[in-house]
Amino acid sequence: MTLTQQIITIAVCALGTMATRFLPFLIFSGSKPTPPFIKYLGQALPAAVFGMLVVYCLKDVDFLAAPHGLPEMLAIALTVALHLWRRQMLLSIAGGTVCYMLLVQLIFH
């Protein structure tokens, strides 16, 4: 690939990304009020999207082979327990991450 072709490839990737980020605002953000159904989606989608992102993070975990996603499930359980207990975002994330690192470095390696 020449330098120009590389620049075009990178620009096209940036353009595709920006299209998906800007499109809803270009369509619905004018002077007209947002259509009721889109407003409904804006309220209903986030919880579904966060569920989707959690599963997305686990996409490369192989549940069929040992250790069957056990370190991930244990660390997630601890993260949830910490968060229900203290409801401190940083504490829950740090606790879950340290737990996962210990599990994969010391037990499931």
Partner: peptide, 14 residues
């Protein structure tokens, strides 16, 4: 295993 902090963050946000 440090990469798990992203998963933990999305779990907390969920």
């Amino acid at each position: 295993g440090l990469e798990f902090c992203m998963t933990a963050m999305f779990v907390v946000i969920f």
